[in-house]
């Protein structure tokens, strides 16, 4: 068993009322914001299970929007998130949807910036911890323990090798590597969880790898 952290017990510092339904929801929204890597203009949000049943009590809706606006779970502006969304030109909608056999505190989000759009699904698994389990239709496993480098690229020979080489050259160790695609030769997704933070220069180099379309980093959180 991993050693229990002092500030996991005496903490987290967060905006209430619930670590799973509020704090975790802020982090799920923030993860979407970071993966899109841009200001979000439109968001379609589907709440599942306990999120759908009790969102109003724990203000899961407000929390998700706060995250989409880029707030962390202890941001004192969280209660005003819906008003701030209006000011920031973020259009959103909520619905209740059965996402199937997933964690009860799960949410699906489709978010759109001026250039790009992503869809992801994740769960708040307790104590403010989260898990993203679907990204653009690909099954993934991201919980924020590690820094993640994500690329969307053409499914061609050599792309993955080139991307990992860039990381190696910059002395970044890959802890886990996950590659998926829908059909051969179509768009593929690479998720590299790294032991070290990923500097901007690395992102720029990866962006230049032939076949790579989109590069994003998600710092550990």
């Amino acid at each position: 068993m991993a050693r229990i952290g002092l500030f996991d017990i005496v903490g987290p510092i967060m905006v209430g009322p619930s670590s799973s339904h509020t704090a975790g929801a802020v982090r799920l929204g923030l993860a979407a914001r970071r993966i899109l890597g841009a200001h979000i203009q439109r968001a379609k949000i589907a709440l599942h299970g306990s999120f759908a049943a009790t969102y109003w009590g724990h203000r899961t809706d407000v929390a998700l929007i706060a995250g989409l606006l880029g707030m962390g779970m202890d941001d004192e502006r969280i209660p005003q998130a819906l008003d701030l969304a209006k000011k920031a030109g973020l259009d959103y909608s909520f619905e209740s949807r059965d996402l199937g056999d997933v964690h009860p505190n799960s949410v699906w989000m489709q978010v759109e910036g001026s250039q790009d759009q992503i869809a992801l699904a994740g769960a708040s698994v307790g104590g403010g911890r989260i898990q993203i389990f679907e990204l653009n239709g690909f099954e993934v496993e991201v919980d924020g323990t590690y820094t993640v480098l994500m690329t969307r690229h053409r499914d061609e020979p050599g792309v993955i090798a080139e991307v990992t080489k860039v990381l190696a050259v910059h002395g970044i160790n890959i802890a886990f590597l996950d590659v998926s695609r829908k059909t051969r030769g179509s768009e593929a997704l690479l998720l590299a969880e790294t032991d070290d933070p990923i500097p901007e220069i690395v992102v720029q180099h990866v962006q230049r790898v032939p076949g790579v379309m989109v590069v994003r980093t998600l710092p550990s959180f």
Partner: peptide
């Protein structure tokens, strides 16, 4: 009370018992 009203608190060990 502050936690219930979306206030900033230290979960200790949980938000409900803060």
């Amino acid at each position: 009370q502050y936690n219930a009203g979306l206030g900033r608190i230290v979960a200790c060990p949980t938000a409900g018992a803060c």
